[in-house]
Deep mutational scan, measured.
Amino acid sequence: MTTFKLIINGKTLKGEITIEAVDAAEAEKIFKQYANDNGIDGEWTYDDATKTFTVTE
Protein backbone atom coordinates (compact mmCIF):
# COMPACT_ATOMS: atom_id res chain seq x y z
CA MET A 1 0.00 0.00 0.00
CA THR A 2 1.09 3.55 -0.73
CA THR A 3 0.05 6.77 0.99
CA PHE A 4 -1.72 9.32 -1.20
CA LYS A 5 -2.85 12.83 -0.27
CA LEU A 6 -5.72 14.95 -1.57
CA ILE A 7 -5.55 18.73 -1.21
CA ILE A 8 -8.99 20.35 -1.48
CA ASN A 9 -9.18 23.98 -2.59
CA GLY A 10 -12.95 24.25 -2.74
CA LYS A 11 -15.22 27.25 -2.56
CA THR A 12 -16.72 26.05 0.73
CA LEU A 13 -14.48 23.14 1.72
CA LYS A 14 -10.71 23.30 2.11
CA GLY A 15 -8.31 20.81 3.63
CA GLU A 16 -6.28 17.66 3.16
CA ILE A 17 -7.10 13.97 3.28
CA THR A 18 -4.60 11.12 3.38
CA ILE A 19 -5.40 7.52 2.44
CA GLU A 20 -3.63 4.23 1.79
CA ALA A 21 -4.24 2.72 -1.66
CA VAL A 22 -2.76 0.06 -3.93
CA ASP A 23 -1.99 2.57 -6.70
CA ALA A 24 -2.78 6.06 -8.00
CA ALA A 25 -5.80 4.83 -9.97
CA GLU A 26 -7.43 3.41 -6.83
CA ALA A 27 -6.60 6.56 -4.85
CA GLU A 28 -8.08 8.75 -7.58
CA LYS A 29 -11.30 6.72 -7.57
CA ILE A 30 -11.61 7.04 -3.77
CA PHE A 31 -10.80 10.76 -3.77
CA LYS A 32 -13.20 11.56 -6.62
CA GLN A 33 -16.00 9.68 -4.85
CA TYR A 34 -15.26 11.67 -1.67
CA ALA A 35 -15.32 14.93 -3.64
CA ASN A 36 -18.58 13.97 -5.35
CA ASP A 37 -20.17 13.03 -2.01
CA ASN A 38 -19.20 16.46 -0.65
CA GLY A 39 -20.34 18.50 -3.67
CA ILE A 40 -16.83 19.40 -4.83
CA ASP A 41 -16.51 19.81 -8.59
CA GLY A 42 -13.30 21.27 -9.91
CA GLU A 43 -10.07 20.81 -11.83
CA TRP A 44 -7.95 17.84 -10.81
CA THR A 45 -4.17 17.52 -10.93
CA TYR A 46 -1.81 14.77 -9.76
CA ASP A 47 1.87 14.97 -8.82
CA ASP A 48 3.41 11.49 -8.96
CA ALA A 49 6.60 12.59 -7.20
CA THR A 50 4.68 13.53 -4.04
CA LYS A 51 1.68 11.19 -4.58
CA THR A 52 -0.59 14.21 -4.19
CA PHE A 53 -3.89 14.94 -5.89
CA THR A 54 -5.28 18.48 -5.87
CA VAL A 55 -8.82 19.55 -6.70
CA THR A 56 -9.52 23.25 -7.19
CA GLU A 57 -12.99 24.73 -7.62
Rank of each mutant, 00 (worst) to 15 (best):
M1I: 12
M1V: 12
M1L: 11
M1A: 07
T2G: 05
T2S: 05
T3F: 15
T3V: 03
T3H: 12
F4M: 02
F4T: 01
F4G: 00
K5E: 05
K5V: 07
L6V: 05
I7L: 03
I7M: 12
I7S: 04
I7R: 14
I8R: 02
N9W: 09
N9S: 06
N9V: 11
G10H: 07
K11C: 06
K11V: 07
K11T: 11
K11I: 04
K11E: 06
T12E: 03
T12F: 08
T12N: 15
L13M: 13
L13W: 12
L13H: 10
L13S: 09
K14I: 08
K14F: 07
K14D: 07
K14P: 06
K14L: 14
K14Y: 12
K14G: 10
G15Q: 08
E16W: 07
E16M: 10
I17G: 04
T18V: 09
T18R: 08
E20V: 07
E20M: 05
E20A: 07
E20W: 03
A21T: 04
A21W: 03
A21G: 02
V22W: 11
V22A: 14
V22E: 06
V22T: 09
D23A: 11
D23R: 02
A24V: 14
A24S: 13
A25E: 08
A25H: 12
A25N: 13
A25P: 05
E26F: 09
E26T: 10
E26Y: 14
A27D: 00
E28C: 02
K29M: 11
K29C: 02
K29T: 09
K29D: 08
K29P: 14
I30N: 03
I30D: 05
I30P: 02
I30L: 08
F31N: 00
F31D: 00
K32Q: 08
K32M: 04
K32H: 12
Y34S: 13
Y34A: 04
Y34T: 08
Y34G: 01
Y34D: 01
Y34P: 00
A35R: 05
A35S: 11
A35G: 08
N36F: 15
D37Q: 11
D37P: 02
N38Q: 13
N38R: 15
N38H: 14
G39V: 10
G39T: 12
G39E: 11
G39Q: 14
I40N: 12
I40H: 14
I40W: 11
D41L: 08
D41T: 12
D41C: 06
G42F: 01
G42H: 13
E43P: 08
W44K: 00
T45N: 11
T45S: 12
T45K: 11
T45L: 09
Y46T: 02
Y46Q: 03
D47W: 06
D48T: 06
D48G: 10
A49F: 11
A49V: 11
A49P: 13
A49S: 13
T50P: 04
T50A: 15
T50H: 07
T50I: 05
K51T: 10
K51I: 10
T52I: 11
T52E: 03
T52K: 08
T52Q: 12
F53L: 02
F53P: 00
F53D: 00
F53G: 00
T54F: 01
T54M: 15
T54Y: 12
V55T: 10
T56W: 04
T56M: 08
E57K: 08
E57Q: 15
E57V: 05
E57A: 03
E57Y: 07
